[in-house]
Design a protein around this nucleic acid. Structure first.
Lengths: 296, 296
DNA sequence: TGCCGCGATCGAAATTTGTCATGTGCAATG
DNA sequence: CATTGCACATGACAAATTTCGATCGCGGCA
């Protein structure tokens, strides 16, 4: 009772454990944390030894964690939350002001929500207004000065030095295995709606001569495209998060799709200390965890 | 912004900080934590450096902590609470049962409350019944088997091997400076009520010949005695927690008062796994912090 | 003024933590 | 069924951090 229970947890180890869950594996967690794989492995092992119980269930099959592990993760999450907030509150300068923020639908229910929530708690005198639009619209609003900053998806090669990259992702051509690619004539294309900024890229690639694609389906939500693909209605451009096992990735006959990035982009505008702080917090989070994640 | 804020707190350091407040000083905290004074000093210094702000205000006069320090302590307390609970929850076996517990008034609003609260949260199926009585009464109830365990005050020399000592304290003879001790005749005595177990000790010491004391004031609460002393009504036996600067400690003419101890004492009784666990938790807390504290 | 108690600081020693290199188990593959 | 690839574990060693004992400096106090 004395030796193993008197041993204490350390925040660092909890963060590693948490990162393992978040990134789904020791190796990935290590990458994200900027550590070697063995360091992460060791840290967890030490945690296990000091607690005298297993946390990772090295069984294939079931979940990655043991019951004790899941249990601890619960606490870890709360402790880490407090920890990060404590850190922020120490550097807190009384802020007031107004922030107009643009989000995409994708980003509303993820890490960003947590960060925004915490920000409002720490700085109750800052009025944060958020608008949810598609990336193209948000970019236009930024240009027109209607927003102070926005979370937008752009082509990787469009990233500006002042953007903060939240994470990068790759687009894939996908179709259902049952759908044969027509050897000649247009390929049936499942497209996001007009405002989708990489739909243009897809429609532009067939320009040399005849049209490569024929848009047979148009839908604003990823979920709609996903189900159209699985119904073998046609070919679509999807990012990694939306891939499903039953989808087939097309690697020949079509040009490699461009890489994408989710970034925070600020408006060229007057100083805004409140926004500075918020952006700094996001940067912090990104650098600590090696990017943010979205729910898939 | 990047370098000092990206640095992380560690639970250990927070515990040290907290211990410094709790024990009112670096040196005491070190003792309680079983570390050297320099280790504690260093740990705090490191914390300060990594946060790039002062936590202890080395000024004489005002409080021991800076505003940032107090701020951090707030979070530290919450983080430590979660930490300890996490640790406990990992070793948790589903407990059920019933515990009859005796407390003194002194112990109701201190660390014990925190431990009991946590215990009930972690083991909702254990019914904890508490009774608040004076130490003498509690001891009798223990003997009669009406309680499973009790937190009682006893003479230090009465501590049994099976008792868990929560902390020790010393009694002092005190009076107001304005009150002269009569050179002959009985000394005016301010006494707790009948059930106070060391009142007997005081009344017994005059037995060789005439009565040394005359009880001029009797009150069940320490607050009453304190104000009677400051009103120069007489002489009283008080423990360190109740000493006030304006009181004068009498060191001659009266025998040195006995040392006291607050202990957890269990009834000689059948096994009670729930009680075992609770007692183990208390032992843990005591060994980690070198005793519990009471509000003065 | 000289003596405490308390905390800061320094160098050396001990402990902890991270890395590289390597080993093991498990699946998919030819 | 050997082979390859992947993900994680482990061991040895180097680097960094933490602790300790000793010593110093500072403010109260007799």
């Amino acid at each position: 009772m004395t030796e193993f229970n008197s041993r204490r947890l350390e925040i660092d180890a909890l963060r590693v454990l948490w990162s393992v869950r978040r990134h789904g594996g020791v190796t990935r967690a290590a990458e994200a944390l900027g550590l070697s794989q063995s360091a992460v492995s060791h840290k967890i092992k030490r945690l296990e030894v000091s607690l005298d119980c297993d946390l990772l269930s090295r069984k294939s099959g079931a979940g990655m964690f043991t019951a004790a592990g899941e249990d601890l993760l619960d606490y870890a999450e709360r402790i880490l939350g407090l920890h990060d907030e404590a850190l922020l509150s120490l550097t807190k300068t009384p802020l007031a002001g107004r922030i107009a923020l643009g989000l995409t639908e994708d980003t509303t229910c993820t890490d960003l929500a947590r960060i925004l929530g915490r920000f409002r708690r720490l700085h109750p005198d800052v009025a944060v207004r958020t608008k949810v639009r598609m990336s193209l619209v948000l970019r236009a609003m930024l240009e027109r000065g209607e927003l102070d900053a926005a979370f937008v998806q752009i082509f990787a090669h469009e990233v500006r030095p002042t953007d903060i990259v939240l994470f990068r992702e790759q687009l894939y051509w996908v179709k259902h295995p049952d759908l044969p690619l027509p050897l000649s004539g247009p390929i049936p294309f499942l497209s996001f709606d007009d405002e989708c900024f990489y739909r243009q890229w897809a429609l532009d690639i067939g320009q040399d001569g005849d049209t490569l694609f024929e848009t047979v389906f148009e839908c604003a939500s990823a979920a709609g495209i996903v189900s159209a693909v699985t119904s073998a209605l046609g070919v679509a451009l999807l990012n990694g998060r939306h891939l499903r096992p039953e989808m087939e990735i097309i690697t020949n006959r079509l040009p490699t799709p461009p890489a994408l990035a989710y970034v925070v982009r600020r408006a060229r505008k007057a100083r805004n200390p409140a926004l500075d702080t918020l952006v700094a917090e996001i940067e912090n989070e990104v650098s600590r965890y090696g990017g943010l994640t979205l729910a898939s």
